[in-house]
Design a protein around this nucleic acid. Structure first.
Length: 633
DNA sequence: CACCCGGAAGTTTG
DNA sequence: GCAAACTTCCGGGT
């Protein structure tokens, strides 16, 4: 068992998250694999009980959890907001203190976390039995043990999993249903959580506990433990014929022929697995048809919905690369129908990944603009980062309240944007300092003239105000960045406080809530422009449309910043080595002390799919396809 | 209407 | 940049 290393309190700071706008909060205990099913209901109760003790919560909340292992606890937001930044510390100490009382040994190196989910007030009644989904707008807050290097501990199977001692959850959950979610075995655990069992003999190792059996398929581990291939998924279902016969069943196991019992539900199930909310049998079957060519599956002629494995799934060679489950995929239909990109705050983190985003030079007006530009891309590539863990957190029960799939919620989100006061002067007040810099961060901070600039330390709490109105209270500087990188799901990327903006020399009273500026949901474009201007001095703030996911592209005018720096900046390009681009060279400590007027900032929509310089599309985000039509013909 | 087919293009990931 | 494995869309067929 791994030794428990110091816990990050910075994570707990993020308990006060800017995206918490609802009036209630879930508390979801999670275990090492972020699989609450590892806990018995007694464990969950115990967990909640000490939460009650430690935080003087209403005892009622202890009973307010479902028995599916996805324990929930409703808290009033005000209760939660009053928690101290040391909340996580208290939680952990309590966890340690009470652990011996619990019904089974829970590895001390497990991930213990709280999952905060925003829930519209009118839907809070439904929330008890509806844990948050992966696709939900749910900032995930976890308290993660770290090693001495500050890296989240990587656990091996033998260390972290004790499935033999695990106890089944409440028996009521034995009936799988869509509303209950995809079995966790088919979902995507964190790479570091997943274990590769010794299954060399290839024989199935059926666990007596059906839940546990579903948790992990020892027979067919993938390279990273993720069941991400369709045939694999189907095979998994077939393996547990009793449980999943409503989706698919063997027609003849001997001949490896199977029949899809309910194509629509299977597609939905598959869609859940891949976080593709619009999955249909039409699409699923298309994927199946691709297997024809690959000699993996063929159609059984004349028999509807019946297919045949051409070789035993155990022997199918896998060249897995892409097509991992998406993170919080927002329906494309909605994007297009709304003629407006989904607010960044609701976007999947992957949507912002830089993998498909070419450098700015490939975009319009990049090379010939003669401006130094850097791109606020946003992705942690660290495989062990908790963001990844959260990214692939099993999308347990889907619930309308957190899916943000329905039009109503989207309209509400848009309304929020539209209602945002335009041309607001944004002011940030630093209200506290909870500094926790790693060595690297400290070192880098020292590189700057701190007397001249106010670099918001990691974890700094700020207020974001507009026209005297507090827009977001107690934003965490660090979490603000995380909002950028994981706008829709997690604020836990605090493992690497040494992100770019920790090191930036910022003028005083500068808004450090970059994510705000990146989020059309949170800020009007004018306000975002304001932000960019105030942060970086007069420059163009290009609101760039990139594969339907906007982000801010900052151009530093050559005449102001010299000509020697034309490289692009990707803040997260190499989070492993922390080898950031020499942003310090680009920034001089002299920044305008005053927020520029809105007119000084220029906001335009750009997109990289066209070579042609697009017209200034003003500031209204438009769906990618519409943009393409407009500019490319 | 449900299912089936395969081309084409796009997306996401490793 | 490339490739795998889809996803999305579509026109057409049974």
């Amino acid at each position: 068992m791994c030794s428990v290393s110091p816990w990050s309190m910075t994570d707990s700071i993020n308990l006060r998250t800017p995206t918490m706008q609802s009036t209630c909060v879930h508390l979801v205990p999670n275990t090492l694999a972020l699989r609450p099913t590892q806990w018995t209901s007694q464990d969950v109760k115990a967990w909640l009980r000490f939460c009650v003790e430690e935080f003087s919560l209403s005892p009622n909340c202890v009973d307010k959890f479902d028995m599916n292992g996805k324990a929930l606890c409703l808290l009033e937001r005000k209760d939660f907001m009053e928690r101290s930044p040391a909340c996580g510390d208290v939680l952990y100490n309590a966890f340690k203190k009470h652990q011996h009382q619990w019904s089974r040994q829970i590895p001390t190196d497990c991930y213990v976390g709280l999952q905060l989910v925003t829930v519209p007030p009118n839907q809070q009644n439904d929330v008890i039995s509806s844990p948050p989904t992966q696709g939900s707008k749910s900032p995930y807050i976890s308290i993660l043990p770290r090693n001495k290097d500050g890296i989240v501990s990587k656990m091996s199977c033998s260390e972290s999993m004790d499935s033999s001692s695990s106890q089944p959850m409440d028996s009521k959950e034995s009936n799988i249903s869509l509303s209950q979610g995809v079995p966790t075995s088919m979902l995507s655990p964190a790479p570091s959580e997943r274990c590769t069992s010794d299954s060399e003999n290839g024989s199935p190792q059926h666990n007596s506990d059906p839940e546990m059996e579903a948790e992990f398929d020892p027979e067919h581990p993938t390279d990273d433990g993720v069941c991400r291939l369709l045939w694999e998924f189907i095979y998994q279902l077939l393996l547990d014929g009793e449980k999943y016969s409503k989706f698919v069943l063997w027609e003849s196991e001997k001949d490896l022929t199977f029949r899809i019992n309910n194509p629509n539900e299977l597609a939905e199930f598959w869609g859940k697995q891949k976080n593709r909310t619009n999955m249909t049998y039409e699409k699923l079957s298309r994927a199946l048809r691709y297997y024809y060519k690959m000699d993996i599956i063929k159609k059984v002629p004349g028999k509807r919905l019946t297919y045949q494995f051409l070789q035993h799934p155990k022997k199918i060679r896998k060249g897995q690369r892409g097509a991992r489950p998406h993170c919080n995929r927002i329906p494309v239909n909605g994007e297009i129908q709304s003629s407006e990109p989904i607010p960044i705050a609701l976007r999947p983190s992957s949507a912002l990944s830089g993998t498909k985003s070419p450098p700015i030079s490939s975009g319009v007006n990049a090379d010939n603009c003669s401006q130094r530009s850097f791109q606020i891309s946003s992705e942690y590539k660290t495989s062990e980062s908790p963001s990844n863990i959260n990214c692939i957190l099993p999308p347990v029960n889907v619930h309308e309240s957190t899916d943000y799939e329905n039009l109503e919620n989207k309209m509400a989100a848009r309304q929020e944007v539209e209602n945002y006061p335009q041309n607001s002067l944004l002011v940030v007040q630093k209200i506290s300092e909870e500094i926790e810099c790693d060595n690297a961060g400290e070192k880098n901070l020292n590189k700057y003239n701190r007397s001249d600039v106010s670099t918001p330390p990691y974890g700094t709490d700020i207020n974001l105000q507009a026209n005297g109105i507090i827009l977001s209270q107690s934003l965490s500087y660090a979490s603000s960045f995380s909002c950028v990188s994981r706008p829709s799901q997690t604020l836990t990327n605090m493992d690497e406080p040494s992100v770019l903006y920790d090191r930036l020399p910022l003028p005083q009273h500068t808004i450090v809530q970059r994510s705000t500026s990146l989020s059309p949901k949170r800020l009007s474009p004018e306000a975002a422009s304001h932000f960019c201007t105030s942060l970086h001095g007069p420059k163009e703030a290009h609101y760039r449309q990139q594969t339907a996911y906007p982000y801010v592209q900052l151009h530093l005018p050559q005449h102001q910043y010299g000509s020697s720096h034309s490289h692009h900046y990707y803040p997260f390009q190499d989070s492993h080595s922390h080898s950031y681009q020499p942003i310090s060279n680009m920034y001089q400590p002299e920044f305008p002390r005053e927020v520029a007027t809105p007119q000084e900032a220029h906001l335009s929509v750009k997109y990289e799919t066209c070579d042609e310089q697009p017209e200034d599309l003003s500031i209204k985000p438009i769906a990618r396809k519409m943009l393409q039509q407009k500019t490319c013909g």
